[in-house]
């Protein structure tokens, strides 16, 4: 198999902006002259179901789906979804997870329970975990919907590409009204990536 491809799996819950994050990442790859494929399934994405987006970057990409167990980076906007997707991660993979906790109604009826501490469960399986309190940061920035951009910025340190390319992609793809706040959120995430103690 061609191991030069970089595989990024982005997961979350419908409405969290998984698709925008994978669009931004793909755009950055294209602007950097690389081949890219990304894959996700639409349809239920706005109805609180699981949303996942596979992004593969390299010289030549065939499958739009990441081969199982070969994700280099698992980026999760919700803790339990990070746990759910953990087996996609490759042996040296990096997890970047938001401490966001979205308990589905189904967990209120006794049959299923939401794990007490999904981040701790992830940490039991791999040491390469960055957990971010992105909800709080998004609220501080004034918009709870910025979790995706903050997390993407934290992960960008592990994905690569120059900072100005990321900013350019945000200007290109985000609705004009929300460009500034997303640039701020991205900057905030980058700061955080540089100062791990503050997480």
């Amino acid at each position: 198999m061609d191991n030069t491809n970089k595989n990024i799996l982005i997961v979350g819950v419908g409405g969290q902006g998984v698709l925008l994050a994978s669009e931004l990442l793909s755009e950055v790859a294209i602007m950097s002259g690389l081949d890219v494929k990304k894959s996700e399934v639409h349809g239920m994405s706005q109805r609180g179901g699981v949303v996942s987006s596979h992004v593969r970057i390299g010289k030549k990409v065939y499958s739009p789906i990441i081969p199982y167990g070969q994700a280099d980076i698992l980026l999760s906007f919700e803790q339990a979804e990070g746990l759910r997707a953990l087996d996609w991660l490759g042996p040296d993979g990096q997890v970047v997870v938001s401490r966001t906790r979205l308990v589905p109604p189904i967990a209120n009826f006794g049959k299923f329970s939401y794990p007490d501490d999904p981040v701790a469960d992830i940490q039991k399986k791999t040491s390469r975990v960055i957990a971010v309190d992105a909800d709080r940061m998004a609220h501080e920035l004034g918009n709870p919907r910025l979790v995706n951009t903050i997390l993407l910025a934290v992960a960008s340190k592990h994905i690569g590409f120059a900072r100005d390319v990321w900013d350019e992609a945000i200007r290109k793809l985000v609705k004009p009204k929300f460009v500034d706040i997303n640039l701020k959120a991205f900057a905030r995430g980058c700061e955080l990536a540089e100062t791990p103690a503050k997480r």
């Binding site: 819950v13 419908g14 239920m44 109805r47 609180g48 179901g49 699981v50 199982y68 167990g69 339990a80 979804e81 746990l83 759910r84 087996d87 996609w88 589905p104 109604p105 189904i106 967990a107 299923f112 329970s113 939401y114 794990p115």
Partner: peptide, 15 residues
């Protein structure tokens, strides 16, 4: 790897 078994975690059906 082995095929991932999502049954080990609560389901998150669309609502």
């Amino acid at each position: 790897g082995a095929e991932y078994d999502p049954a080990q975690l609560f389901p998150r059906p669309p609502v």
